[in-house]
Design a protein around this nucleic acid. Structure first.
Length: 682
DNA sequence: GTGCGAGTATGA
DNA sequence: CATACTCGCACC
């Protein structure tokens, strides 16, 4: 290490360089070296670089602050990871240019979690830091007073029962909460009992953590759930103990929320996936709702899932971990099986009483499509159920989102309509016209079913609006409310009416719906992809959980399911046994070597670049490399690599090397590398 | 990505 | 031999 130059280019090796005497800038007296993670955006430069701290920046240049540094002739952003006495770098060190803000926004715990997330997803740390720490907002920093007192930690447990209400149905609930309260780090996957709180379990667990002087981080799929959980937290603890953190609140509000958590103004953060990295003080609990919801998947590289981020954070900070939902995802079932989390479910007798009775109306067998004069797609069982229930309260009708299921089926034999050229699924554009192939784009202007030669096609899904009209006609005089798309109803009152909703937009109703109709079951199950069954189960249980339990006469009718065949998702619904389904699905995937039973990586890009990138790569022992196969329409290919779960980290490490190599040699066109892609085949 | 040195091509 | 160019790699 030598005395710094002024930060500009000055090579002593070059004779021609103007022999300016190095103007000695005083550096910090202790730990003058700042280890800086520079945001270069280049995978092969994803490592820390050392800089010298000028004396005048000494106080501000703490670990965790944002800085500007000169790097390869450009001014780049970075974070100080640590201060050191010495450097290991042989050359000259440049000076830190500037401390962007003295706020140490990257805490050691969050940094540790980011490193592990980066490793898990074979991505650059820089990318993860970009997800974790929101962009600085100077006005927000200024507006938030430095001296807001931390709320006194409520050590008293008055007003909070040992086992809060929503946790009562679970035999091992007290054990989980007890360990949370006493500073332990239990981990559990809860299958929530309908009618007993659901989301409220998260808020109550947070209140338990809070009472024990621990912080809590609650992540839910969407803004509606955030509002709901906030309400519950307010109800339990009163104002001033939590903050909302979502991406859609805008840069200033988001940064303010981040700072409030960072500075310890509040110890509870409630938010969407943007909150998963929030620097909650004394983190004692991480919890999330509905693991299978795709909103928990980050959309920016390296695409970490909330589940993975929170599990890592729980481990880094010795916090309790709680995943809850109406169903259990296959991944969480895998975690249960690995004993990473304990299964928490209510007893079968409670489940039977609290869940609605489920009946299956296959439109083929009921054959009563005509009850309403020919238009509505409503078998008589569904119609009669709704009719009866409307005397007692509102009836929920779940319809798949318009355009959500693009598949077409044969009107006569009900088999999926396939492209004559490549056997891909045919789709109908919303704008109409001929069906086209979803894989090769071929226009099927003269389609005939490959099985029965019928030219007639059946749109698997009709949109919510049309369904509303049809049902309105089927039940004259009954008010119809719709929720979905741009207009989402939060709640409806308990007067009799039809409530037509798309999945995820079902309004809550005090006391529960008298009945629920789940339409187009067939279409939902028929979706392409690994997780069609899992997804159908999620959606059906989410709607069914809003219906009164069988004890109060609640009934759910599944409409349009496969005739004469009992597929596991349907059986799971009828028995109201989500964990049974998860276990069965996991067994099946284990048998096929598919995730989450195995680790999986996808590499996407032009075929020759893929081949160049993986040439000579030593995959972990036992890995399978599949492909490359074409995906999408852009001429890209995809390579799949699977390996055992125990080799997952090793696979990620190999891929990190591949990524760095591709980035370093410039002719290497960008290829996308992704671990645990939710839809590896499409 | 950018900047720089090494290495190589080019022409007098 | 001087100059012009590309290539490969380090970047603190």
């Amino acid at each position: 290490m030598s005395i710094a130059d002024d930060g500009e280019q000055l090579s002593l090796l070059r004779a021609r360089a103007p022999k300016r005497p190095p103007s000695p800038v005083p550096v910090a007296p202790t730990d003058p070296v700042a280890v800086v993670q520079v945001d270069t955006g280049l995978a092969h430069l994803d490592r820390p670089f050392d800089y010298l701290v000028p004396a005048d920046l000494d106080a501000d240049a703490r670990a965790g602050v944002r800085v500007k540094v000169r790097f390869s002739g450009r001014d780049l952003d970075g974070f100080i990871l640590e201060r050191r006495a010495e450097t290991e770098h042989d050359g000259r060190l440049k000076l830190l240019r500037r401390v962007v803000s003295p706020e140490p926004v990257l805490t050691p715990a969050v940094l540790a979690a980011c490193r592990r997330v980066a490793r898990h997803y074979a991505g650059p740390l820089g990318d993860v830091l970009r997800l974790a720490v929101p962009p600085r907002h100077a006005a927000a920093e200024k507006a938030l007073a430095q001296d807001v007192p931390q709320p006194p930690v409520t050590q008293s447990r008055e007003g909070l029962a040992d086992v809060p209400p929503s946790w009562i149905p679970y035999a091992v609930g007290p054990a989980f909460l007890g360990r949370l309260r006493s500073g332990g780090s239990p981990a559990a996957s809860v299958v929530a009992l309908p009618g007993h709180g659901g989301l409220r379990m998260l808020a109550e667990a947070a209140a338990v953590a809070h009472a024990a002087g621990r912080g809590a981080l609650l992540v839910v799929p969407d803004a509606r759930d955030v509002a709901h959980v906030e309400e519950q937290v307010l109800d339990l603890l009163g104002p001033g103990h939590h903050v909302r953190l979502t991406a859609d609140q805008g840069p200033q509000a988001r940064y303010t929320a981040y700072l409030k958590a960072l500075r310890g103004h509040v110890r509870i953060v409630v938010g969407t996936r943007a909150a998963a990295f929030a620097p909650v003080r004394d983190l004692g609990l991480v919890a999330w709702w509905d693991d299978g919801d795709s909103s928990l998947d980050e959309l920016r590289a390296p695409y970490p899932h909330v589940r993975e981020v929170l599990a890592i954070r729980a481990e880094v900070e010795s916090a309790a971990l709680l995943s809850a939902g109406w169903t259990r995802s296959v991944t969480l079932e895998q975690w249960v099986r690995e004993d990473r989390v304990k299964s928490i479910v209510a007893s079968r007798s409670l489940v039977r009483a609290s869940s609605p009775r489920v009946r299956v109306a296959s439109d083929e067998t009921e054959g009563a499509r005509d009850v309403t004069g020919g238009q509505a797609r409503l078998p008589s069982l569904a119609w009669r159920t709704a009719k009866d229930a409307l005397a007692k309260g509102p009836v929920l009708v779940q319809v798949p989102r318009r355009g959500y299921v693009p598949a077409l089926t044969c009107q006569d034999c009900r088999r999926p309509a396939r492209c004559a050229v490549c056997s891909g699924p045919l789709r109908l554009a919303e704008s109409g016209g001929f069906p086209t192939c979803g894989w090769c784009g071929q226009v099927a202007s003269a389609h005939r079913c490959a099985h029965c030669e019928s030219p007639r096609l059946r749109a698997a899904v009709i949109g919510a609006r049309r369904t509303a009209e049809e049902l309105g006609r089927a039940f004259p005089g009954v008010p119809v409310a719709t929720s979905g798309g741009a207009t989402i109803l939060d709640t409806v009152d308990d007067r009799p009416r039809l409530v037509i909703a798309t999945p995820g937009a079902e309004p809550a109703v005090e006391g529960g719906y008298a009945a629920g109709l789940l339409l187009d079951a067939w279409a939902l199950l028929d979706r392409p992809g690994l997780d069609a069954g899992e997804e159908a189960v999620r959606r059906w249980f989410a709607a069914g959980s809003l219906v009164r339990g069988s004890e109060q006469g609640g009934v759910v009718v599944l409409v349009g399911s496969p005739a004469h065949v009992t597929v596991p998702p349907v059986e799971a619904l009828v028995r109201w046994d989500p964990s049974w389904f998860a276990a069965k699905e996991l067994d099946e995937r284990s048998g096929l070597g598919l995730p989450p039973a195995s680790a999986l990586a996808t590499l996407t890009g032009a075929r020759r670049h893929l081949m160049a990138a993986v040439e000579g790569v030593a995959w972990p022992a036992g890995s399978r490399v599949l492909g490359p196969l074409p995906v999408g329409a852009a001429g890209a290919d995809r390579l799949l690599v699977t390996t055992s779960r125990s080799q997952g980290e090793a696979l990620a490490d190999v891929l990190r090397g591949v990524r760095a190599m591709v980035a370093a040699r410039r002719e290497g066109e960008p290829i996308q590398i992704r671990m645990d892609a939710p839809d590896p085949s499409g």
